[in-house]
Design a protein around this nucleic acid. Structure first.
Length: 123
DNA sequence: CATCGAACCAACC
DNA sequence: GGTTGGTTCGATG
């Protein structure tokens, strides 16, 4: 069972709009200079990574939603609407994210936005 | 490392 | 009922 939303005693299947809030929130808590992945968000919300992408793609608040801070699981930029992945890379670099060979350094990827700085600079 | 194919979840036609 | 999306992962060359 994917997800059930309760509303005043009413149950229904989860809609994309129900995930929007969660996805946007997770994306917005990602600090500058760091990024998260579609897979992570998807896992946290219990949805498929593509859904996350679709939500971010359909986000109506690209300004308050740093959708460019969401990248592929392997550090790939993947797509980005509103200019293309080209712009995405530029934005991330401006935030302080290091990108090598078109891929983001692993140390910039937050595997869990809910637990930032899981290991600090480490090791 | 690059490419191919299969899985996921919901929306759309 | 079938296809598509800002994906992901495993197997092969």
């Amino acid at each position: 069972m994917p997800l059930i939303v309760l509303e005043e005693g009413t149950v229904r299947r989860a809609k994309l709009e129900d995930y929007e809030e969660a996805v946007y929130t997770l994306a917005s808590i990602v600090p500058p200079g760091k990024v998260t992945t579609y897979g992570v968000i998807a896992k946290l919300l219990g949805v498929s990574p593509r859904l996350v992408g679709k939500i971010l793609a359909a986000n109506e608040n690209p300004i308050i939603i740093p959708c460019h801070r969401v990248v592929g699981s392997r550090g790939d930029l993947k797509g980005y609407t509103g200019g293309g992945a080209r712009v995405k890379r530029r934005l991330l670099e401006l935030e302080g994210v290091k990108i090598l060979g078109g891929k983001i350094a692993r140390n910039h990827i937050l595997e869990d936005p809910l637990q930032p700085a899981a290991r600090g600079a480490g090791r």
